[in-house]
Design a protein around this nucleic acid. Structure first.
Lengths: 337, 337
DNA sequence: TTGAAAGCGCTACCAG
DNA sequence: CTGGTAGCGCTTTCAA
């Protein structure tokens, strides 16, 4: 059986109002009764009922999180950061997976709303354009929304974006610095906003170095290992196969490395590879993958902080935050000899 | 502003009781009023307030999950399975990370209890012995507890364990089958129950094959990459270095592979390596790691099903379920020539 | 410094 | 088939 403040009140011969006061340290209570009540609380291992509290306070102190797939290391890291920051700021988090499926995403949102979450964080993988975001704009009328790794304008919507164009630019510039001129890109879904940005960064780096852009060095994959394998194989059959390749995420980079080794190329001796996202796994692969880091931890923290600022009103958050990418140099790139 | 059943009642000119009836499909309501109410619900996008419902029903339909670290791929997979199954059975899940720290774990539990979770699932990484589990036994008086990948007796506690001894036995037997005789083990924390089981399986396999057990082939690591690296380096300095090594988890296997390559050995040509857990990452490493799979997905599903059976009373769950390990053969082992 | 009481949104029981 | 209402555990206002 679970004790309630009513039980405590009876045991201490005071009213429930007084008990509530000492639990919440609100209002004044005599030292004596305070001690008595606190002793009882300890003795019976009283656990306050957050459900009741949420109901009366009209505030659940709970944050909802929607990600594509919690098993994907990219999202695991964001979720972990969100949970840690939520812990610090005093929120619980309920999370769910959308698998980038519209219906599932709507189901997630419904579940979170039913649970009266105070705000919802969406983390990545939803850049399917305006149509896709229409329901987010609606949602934001009910509850503040934070988009991590994506931008959407609208009332009550806050965005955290990573400068992907710059990330791509730095990655490709680094390859150029290493002496590479035949640099390919295995990009993400074509016409997908992040892909466009990455392509822009890629082109800009080439342009600044005076290297002509070649359409045949541009491929599009599906962010999975297979996409990396398939595309690198095609690239290596070109008359002038690339000596370096930049991929839109790390899994495709791994696929590329795998395929290259299969074809008898050495990485990085023959071909340099650089990925995007910098998932934890990169420290374990062989060779350790050089990658563009999007600071997922910072994004997750910031997402919670934005909501917290909103709830407490202590600070008015910006509508858009930009996180600068960082190049994590490891062992998969080498100077062209 | 959020609508409540009161609003709906007013709009439909009925009592809130009637509205509640159509929402929950309980009690009889005339077709006509039912339609009227349902129309209004749709029109105003009514979202039921689960917090209020939980309070009166004394049942939150929420499950709490405590894992060591959601970023660890081993746990991500369990969490994902838990979330999927919870979705099917109609529960929300609140999860938190303990980092295998006793205080943090207790904090997690407190948070979950405050949120009135109907049951709590602990997933792995807590096999620190009876002392460590004392508070779990207490907890189980308040709420049913499921331990995934661990056993603990006690009232209201349900366990799912993987037969680790058998897993180790099969792994080592497989190496023996491939002709290896000098087989080392890089185990987990010494005196840690899973480590003891794995060592037993290892010994049993050797014994059945008539291969003498050698103490010098037994090492203990910390489940991290470094542990694998350090230990394999020591092993390779032996007069008779092993031709195959079995590690207690996959990260140590990766560390071992990395160190072996650094020392100039080829994997699997010179040394075969086999891991434990079979995390998703294994499909991406080079070579793909052969590993003992613990069916985390099945464990997560089962954990939720146990709770569900308990809540509905439709079936009395067993106190202990055993999941049989499966050897995932990949590319990191080769026949000894 | 304290208590009584209203009420958060909902379910479930009892009457009609 | 429908409505009135008690009450889930708690916070908060108003009085005392």
């Amino acid at each position: 059986m679970n004790y309630t403040i009513k039980d405590i009140a009876k045991m201490a011969n005071v009213s429930i109002a007084t008990v509530s006061r000492v639990i919440n340290e609100t209002g004044s209570v005599s030292k004596k009764t305070e001690k008595k009540i606190n002793d009882i609380i300890k003795e019976i291992h009283y656990v306050p009922n957050n459900v009741a509290r949420s109901l009366v306070k009209q505030n659940s102190k709970t944050i909802g999180v929607v990600v594509a797939d919690i098993m994907n290391p990219f999202y695991s890291e964001i979720i972990r950061a969100i949970q840690d920051q939520a812990d610090i700021d005093g929120y619980s988090v309920i999370s769910c997976n959308s698998d980038e499926d519209m219906d599932k995403e709507k189901q997630c949102i419904q579940m979170l709303l039913e649970n009266q979450v105070s705000g919802i964080i969406f983390a990545g993988g939803r850049g399917k354009g305006d149509y896709y975001n229409a329901h987010i704009v609606d949602l934001a009328q009910k509850v503040p929304v934070v988009l991590a790794d994506e931008y959407q304008s609208g009332d009550n919507i806050y965005s955290i974006v990573c400068n992907k164009s710059k990330g791509a630019f730095e990655a490709v510039s680094y390859l150029i610095e290493l002496g590479h001129k035949r640099i390919a890109i295995i990009n993400g879904y074509q016409e997908y906003k992040p892909s466009i940005e990455k392509l822009n960064g890629y082109k800009k780096a080439l342009k600044e170095a005076g290297i002509p852009f070649k359409e045949e060095y541009v491929k599009y994959g599906d962010y999975h290992v297979n996409g990396g394998e398939r595309n690198i194989k095609e690239l290596m059959t070109l008359d002038e196969p690339p000596t370096a390749v930049f991929t839109a995420n790390d899994l495709m980079a791994m696929g590329a490395i795998k395929a290259l080794k299969g074809l008898g190329y050495r990485v990085p001796a023959d071909v340099s590879v650089i990925g995007f996202d910098d998932i934890m796994m990169n420290e374990y692969t062989i060779p350790n993958l050089t990658s563009v880091r999007q600071e997922m931890t910072a994004q997750g923290q910031l997402a919670v902080q934005i909501l917290h600022q909103l709830f407490t009103g202590e600070k008015k958050p910006k509508k858009k935050y930009t996180i600068e990418p960082v190049l994590s140099k490891r062992d998969s790139c080498r100077r062209l000899i």
